[in-house]
Each structure stands twice: as C-alpha cells, then as structure tokens.
Design a protein around this nucleic acid. Structure first.
Lengths: 227, 227
DNA sequence: CAAAACTGTTACAGTTTTATTACAAAAATA
DNA sequence: TATTTTTGTAATAAAACTGTAACAGTTTTG
C-alpha cells in the first residue's frame, strides 16, 4: 500500500490520529481543515482517495463531493464521508451524492483502514497492488526492488519514491510542485528545480542504452512517465 | 511451531486451558471473549489460525467466519470452529460457511493440536514447519539451532528471534518499527537504532567469509533477509 | 536573429542514515 | 552469590544521499 490520501476535516484531533496511523501503514497523507482549501488541494495533488468530513466550515463536504463527482477528471477518486451522526438516512444521502463509502464517528482505526483498503483495491489496483509494472519496468513494494527488463536496478530513496509515484499514474504529467508535495511531502522546503536533478538521477538509473527515455519532459508543465 | 493463534471463546476455562497448552507448544496465543472484539483483533493482528466458538455473545462465530471468508485479505486464515453439540448437521453447516475444520467440546488437547498442525501445514508451511531454510541457512525450531552451510551457528536469543522472523518472509523489507513490534513485542520501549546493533550481530553470526551479506539494508526503509 | 525562458548536467558541501565499537546494566546460569 | 551471557545505548566513524548553485544547452518568443 502506498497511496496518497487526502483528509478534509476540521477536527484537529481526528486529523492527527488518522494521519499518524495511516502514515504508519505506508500511506502518504495530506490534510486540509476547511472545504475551500480541501477542494483546491484535491484538484492539485490528485490523491488516490479522499477522506472527508460531512460538515465543514465554508464549503461543505457534501458540496465538494458533488463537485468532484461532476468533474470528469476527478470523479474516479474514491471518497469516504465521515460523519458524527449514524443515521441511515445520511448514509443513503451520502451514497446518492456520489460518495463511495460512509463511516460514522467515532470509528475504530482498523475499520477505517479496512474500508480504505477495500476501496483502493477496487478503484486503483495500481495503488493497492504490491507489484506494479509499466512496460518492462517493474517495482516490487514488498522487497522494494526495481527491475528494468528483468534486471534489478538500484535506486536511492527519493528516486524510488518518485518512480513509485509516477508509476501509479503513467503518462500523466506532474508539475514540479505536484511532485514535491506528493513525493517529498507537504510542508517541506525544497527548491522546485531540485526535482530536475532527481529526475535526471532516475533517468540515469532506469533508462537503457539505446532505448527511448522513459521520462518525458513537458516544457512549462513538468514530467511524466511515458514511452 | 511458531504460529500466531487467536482464540475467540467466552468460556474462560477453555481459553485458559488451550492458551496454556498451546503456548507450551511454542505458539503465540491471543484471545478474545466476545465476537466484536474477536473480529477486530483478528483483522488487527492477522493471526496464522483462528480457533472460534460457534456461539458467542453479540457477533456469533458463524458471522465472523462468514465475514472473514468474504474478505480477500483474511479468507486464507484457517478457522477451526468449536462447538458444544456434536451434531453432524452443524459440521456440514460449519464447513459450508467456510470454516476449515470443526471440533466438538469437550475435546482432548492432543486432538486439537493435531488438527491445528494439520491445518497450518496445509496453509502456511513456513509457519508450521519446524525446520525452515533459506538458501544454505537452516533454522530448527525444535532444537533452536541454526546452521549455515551445514555448520552450526551460535545466536543470542534476540538474534535468533530476528532471524526466525525474517525467514518467514524472506526478501521482504521490514522497517525498524516493524521489527521491534514483531520481534521484541508490542509495548516495549526500545530505541529503533538498537535494531541496527542486533542486525550487525546477526550478520556477524550468519555471514560467511567471502560470501554476500544475507541481510540487505534498504536505506530509508529497513532490512530484509535476501541474497 | 537575439533575447528570454526553460531544462539538462555537473560538482560539491552539507545532511542524513547506517555501521561499528565499547561499555555499563540487566538477566541468566552455574 | 559469582560468573557469564546478553542487552540496550551512546558515541563516533563511514557511507550514502540530498539540495543547491552555476553554467551549458535547448526551445520559444518577440
């Protein structure tokens, strides 16, 4: 498991708890504490799954859910709604507005985890799977080994994370900023040009003599794993 | 034998008895006295085998069994159902809902043990076996002796446990935290750096002059038994 | 075509992570 | 209880990795 999860929740205690536990499970977690920021961050970072409070300051979780599900580009991001009241009625409503699952507070972490995993397995096998391939490039998250044309490749931690991120959404172009937040983490302070250097290192490691560069540079936009 | 077994049973006398005897056999045993807790604990600790009462307060054993067998992640955990009545009909029912074996109370401990071993041998050879190898490294759980290239090696208790854990999932990378909780135990207070020292001791003991290090360091991730 | 904007590459200093060692305290054993 | 073994930690050394800056090269724009 190596998915990016975005939490939109104004109760700091829940954010802290969930963030801590999900990180321990190997997820990359980002969070926002209000609807406005949350919506922006989701569009920006394209998480693999969203955990969202039902009620939120300003833009409500319900609204965001509707907006996302209406948008072709984001409609496939699974959304789990969190709510304080355990009314059946709300559950129906949640599913109606397009949420993929629904969990009532207080919830146990294992329960949340089970639901997250189930959703991910369904919606994004490439994120949930332990072994992913792209062409003759293979990455094994259990052994943390990377192969190109069946030959093992050594990657440093950052290059490994970068590749792991790229391979979840091949061909998609990510800006340096998106790569920084998704691979490096949220409130980190790193020059965006630093991405270039790691891209170079990754290229050097995964590209084979005489074959096409697996990483495509998109001028003024960013990079993508492509062929 | 070195498997984790979880018991879900509300009769304390049975729990105590079975727990005591299984521990003596080398199993790690945990137990819950009601269905709710049991289900949670099983999902949480992912035991190698479950021993479950047919009738339970709140969530019944039958229900838990069904739930587990429906879940991709837990469906392979072997389940032995315990029941007071020895009716053939129940046996059929048990097997129908996915239980792997069925034993009626009162039962003799040797009988239970035989069934447990049989199931484990079938489902998880690496856990059930008394002698496990990885390459020319061999570990005998009965005599608690370790061999490399047929020559016996002396290991301290912690190094032995570490190796025993590694060898169950060779090549898999474990973080220091995972190693601490799995080898040292759950609520223990040990510096994660201490793992490094024991890794060194283990390396020193099992590695042969002039051969590749059997333990792989994965920077920013942990260690694995590899070659 | 020149200027501007953007990307590629390199080297290196600084940082982080891991390895190794020695040692005192704790635990097991005789 | 004395002796031996094992343990965890802290300190230091070594190795690996990272980020930046500088400059070269390339592409786009005016």
């Amino acid at each position: 498991m190596n998915a990016n999860i975005h939490i939109v929740e104004d109760e700091q205690s829940i954010v802290t708890l969930v963030e801590y536990n999900l990180s321990k499970e190997g997820f990359k977690v980002n969070s926002s504490t209000n609807g406005e920021d949350g919506f922006k961050a989701i569009k920006d970072t394209n998480p693999d799954l969203v955990l969202m409070d039902w009620m939120l300051p300003d833009l409500s979780g319900v609204e965001i859910c509707k907006l996302l599900k209406k948008n072709e580009k984001y409609k496939n991001i699974p959304i789990i709604m969190l709510t304080a009241k355990g009314e059946e009625e709300d559950k129906v409503k949640a599913l109606n507005i397009g949420a993929d699952d629904y969990i009532t507070k207080p919830f146990s972490f294992p329960e949340l985890l089970a639901r997250i995993k189930a959703l991910l397995r369904r919606s994004k096998p490439s994120v949930a799977e332990d072994i992913i391939s792209f062409g003759d490039l293979k990455i094994d998250r259990i052994t943390r080994k990377v192969y190109r044309a069946n030959k093992q490749i050594d990657l440093g931690p950052t290059e490994y994370n970068l590749l792991d991120f790229f391979i979840k959404n091949p061909k998609r172009v990510y800006s340096r900023e998106q790569l920084l937040t998704n691979v490096w983490g949220d409130n980190i302070n790193v020059e965006s040009r630093t991405v270039d250097v790691h891209i170079r290192r990754l290229r050097q490691a995964i590209n084979l003599e005489g074959t096409k560069d697996l990483i495509r540079t998109v001028r003024a936009a960013g990079y993508s794993l492509d062929n």
